[in-house]
Amino acid sequence: MTTVQTVETTRARSAGRGAPDRDRRRRVGNQTPPLTALGFLAPFLILYILFIIGPALYGLLMSFFNTSLVKPGLGTFAGLDNYAEAFGSREFWQSMWHTIYFALLTTPPLVILGLVFAWLAERATRGKAFFRVAFFTPYVLPSAVMALIWVWLYAPIIGLLTKFVTLIGLTAPGWLSDPHWAMPSLALATVWWTLGFNFVLYLAGLGEISRELYEAASIDGASPLQQLRLITLPLLARTTTLVAVLQFIASLKVFDQMFIMTQGGPNYATRSVLQYIYDSGFTDMRTGYAAAASTLFFIVVLIASAVWLVITRRQNEES
């Protein structure tokens, strides 16, 4: 009997000593070798370097030269002359202000309406799938299709908005031909077009909030608006920060709808900084100067991203 116990004890100790070794070998065996992982990443890395990193570095290099589309090579070295010219250019800063103005017109309504419609769709007892599809469908439209729809809506005589304003006894403005109305008109079209993206982000954020919190608040007698103010908005603070910054950066990069609907007019009232860069590089053929203006614009977008990182870090520290 003693011998049997001794053998069993020895086997148990051996098994105990072997278990960590087997676990360690299993973990090592499950790890993907570095060369294998690099092989899977290689196609993406090659394309990313060729079409993103490479052109960006070459554009930065061009910004220090008088590069032109009509002359081969980089051209003559210009140093910081292109940057100095961009800093002193009234047209550059005017287009930068148009871009910021457009971002200020579109970001608040896109954030607020995205939250409101997502909250209403989440609380709907019927037709949730319909509301989600209805709000997100405009976002999948190509920019040219969206622009064509709103050009028809803004048409001076036959446009639907023009007829509606006339029907209620008002004089329809020149939606896209009046310098004072052109930018708000573009902002309205953009809000309709891109609202679905923020709507989906807020739906995802609302889905992460526990239903038990709302049930407890209802038992305590809280109204839906009180639940929105005391539960939904505080718990969606990070989502709101993300949506606001992403939307502001996206609005800064506006180009398609302005270029298609107004071509930067009237009287350059809607020319964004990206269209200014496009005109400098492909109309005036000054690609070196356009690269310098692009670098300055990149710095502005980088500052906006840095602000988001600072706000997010503070939110993480507070939580």
Rank of each mutant, 00 (worst) to 15 (best):
S95A: 15
A250R: 15
T137Q: 13
I299H: 07
L153N: 08
I46R: 04
L47R: 02
L228W: 01
Q5L: 12
V245Y: 00
N82L: 06
A189Y: 01
I219L: 15
A306M: 07
I158W: 15
T76L: 07
A42T: 10
V245P: 00
M261W: 06
D178Q: 08
A19W: 14
Q247R: 12
T106V: 10
M146N: 14
I299S: 06
P179D: 04
E91I: 07
V191Q: 08
A182K: 04
Q227P: 01
T241Q: 07
V200I: 15
D256G: 01
L50V: 14
L41F: 05
S177N: 14
L153Q: 00
I157F: 12
A78F: 07
S272V: 08
T125Q: 06
T190I: 09
V7D: 07
A187W: 06
M96V: 09
R126V: 10
E215N: 08
F255N: 11
G39Q: 02
R17L: 14
Q226N: 13
G73E: 12
T241G: 05
K163S: 14
A147L: 02
W181Q: 05
P108S: 12
S14G: 12
A237C: 07
D178K: 05
L170C: 05
I157N: 15
R211T: 09
N30W: 14
F199P: 00
F135S: 07
T240K: 03
F164L: 11
